[in-house]
Amino acid sequence: MNKSIALALGLILSVVFIPAQTFDKMAPQGFDVERKESPHGKIDTITYESKTVGTQRRALVYTPPGFKKKIQYPVLYLLHGIGGDEKEWFRNGTPQIILDNLYAQGKLTPMIVVLPNGRAMKDDRAIGDIMSKDKVEAFATFEKDLLNDLIPFIEKKYPVKKERENRAIAGLSMGGGQTLNFGLENIDKFAWVGGFSSAPNTKESQELLPEPTKANELKLLWISCGDQDRLMPFSRRTSDYLAQNNIPHIFYVEPGGHDFKVWKNDLYLFSQLLFKNIDQQAISAQLRSE
């Protein structure tokens, strides 16, 4: 075979197969350990006016290593669980370290990550009876706060791309339910949706997505849950509905329960797919393989 033809064929095959081969099913050891020699992103606390709640609210914002104000970035909104607040991911999930390490390996599209408080009420602290009616309802109210107050604030303060193709939402547990509820009800606002171990606040499938084919507009629909998690039925219910309606999505069942070991792994995998041209079917097949 002519050497030039062989070289060209090798390049084509590498483009087709390398992305699948290098997509880990599980985060490698040390993925969440800080490497001082690597460039670091920055975490800031911001305060925004919430007309929905009628008060000033806080969120954390992660900007990537090498962040430049002259460059526009896509945005991921990353939501916490029922017992957390805007600092839960930061304290227990160390997203800044996970993402820093992925950037150092060249595995991420540069993005801004917003960590909001998903309990949209005047006293939004995770104290007292976190299951009380008003606090649970506040997680549903957050949809208006997110769409009408937080996103416009971020898009005014930070150099971000404003098209739906450049906006992602993901979350764990209660935040996973919020993610599926908000993301699938607002496909005109989000093109990338990731529910990690979604909680019982996840709406019934027909209410969640009454027009299933609408979800074909998503770039990525990710649903994951630990195989020992008692909340598995809520993720499986949604995935089954999507499968019955031939909606492309990734349903990833991973080892573990309802904890940050699982959710950190989810973030490690999910973040690598964002804002890229991906084949959900191929990735899903790989994650299901032994």
Results as ranks from 00 to 15, higher is better:
1 M>A: 10
2 N>K: 12
5 I>C: 04
6 A>H: 07
8 A>N: 08
9 L>M: 11
13 L>S: 13
14 S>C: 14
15 V>F: 14
15 V>W: 12
16 V>P: 11
21 Q>M: 14
22 T>F: 11
23 F>N: 00
27 A>T: 07
27 A>Q: 08
30 G>N: 07
31 F>Q: 01
33 V>I: 13
33 V>D: 14
33 V>K: 12
35 R>Q: 15
36 K>E: 13
41 G>N: 03
42 K>N: 10
43 I>D: 00
43 I>C: 03
45 T>M: 10
46 I>D: 08
47 T>R: 11
47 T>D: 13
49 E>D: 15
52 T>P: 09
53 V>R: 05
57 R>H: 03
57 R>A: 00
59 A>F: 02
59 A>L: 06
72 Q>T: 12
73 Y>N: 03
74 P>K: 04
75 V>T: 10
79 L>I: 14
80 H>C: 02
80 H>A: 06
81 G>S: 12
83 G>T: 13
85 D>G: 06
89 W>H: 06
89 W>C: 05
90 F>L: 14
91 R>K: 13
93 G>Q: 02
94 T>Y: 13
98 I>S: 01
101 N>L: 08
102 L>D: 08
105 Q>Y: 06
107 K>A: 10
108 L>G: 00
108 L>F: 06
110 P>N: 08
111 M>Q: 11
113 V>S: 04
114 V>M: 05
115 L>V: 02
117 N>P: 00
119 R>F: 08
121 M>F: 03
122 K>N: 09
125 R>N: 11
129 D>T: 09
130 I>L: 12
132 S>T: 07
134 D>K: 09
134 D>L: 01
136 V>I: 15
137 E>H: 12
137 E>Q: 15
138 A>S: 10
144 K>C: 10
148 N>M: 14
150 L>H: 04
154 I>M: 09
154 I>W: 04
154 I>E: 03
155 E>C: 01
157 K>F: 01
157 K>A: 11
157 K>I: 11
159 P>Q: 09
162 K>S: 08
163 E>Y: 02
164 R>I: 11
165 E>T: 12
166 N>V: 01
169 I>K: 05
172 L>V: 10
175 G>A: 09
176 G>K: 02
180 L>Y: 06
181 N>H: 10
181 N>R: 03
184 L>R: 02
185 E>Q: 15
186 N>V: 07
187 I>E: 07
187 I>W: 01
189 K>P: 01
190 F>V: 09
192 W>P: 11
193 V>H: 05
196 F>R: 07
198 S>C: 11
200 P>C: 09
201 N>R: 04
202 T>V: 15
202 T>Y: 03
203 K>S: 10
204 E>Y: 10
205 S>Y: 06
214 K>H: 06
215 A>G: 11
215 A>R: 00
219 K>R: 13
221 L>K: 02
222 W>R: 03
223 I>R: 01
227 D>M: 06
228 Q>K: 14
229 D>W: 09
229 D>T: 08
232 M>V: 09
236 R>K: 15
238 T>M: 11
240 D>V: 13
245 N>S: 09
246 N>E: 15
248 P>A: 07
253 V>K: 09
255 P>H: 04
256 G>W: 02
257 G>P: 01
262 V>I: 12
262 V>R: 02
263 W>F: 08
264 K>V: 02
265 N>D: 15
266 D>Q: 15
266 D>P: 00
268 Y>L: 05
270 F>N: 04
274 L>V: 09
275 F>N: 03
282 A>L: 13
284 S>K: 05
285 A>R: 15
287 L>I: 07
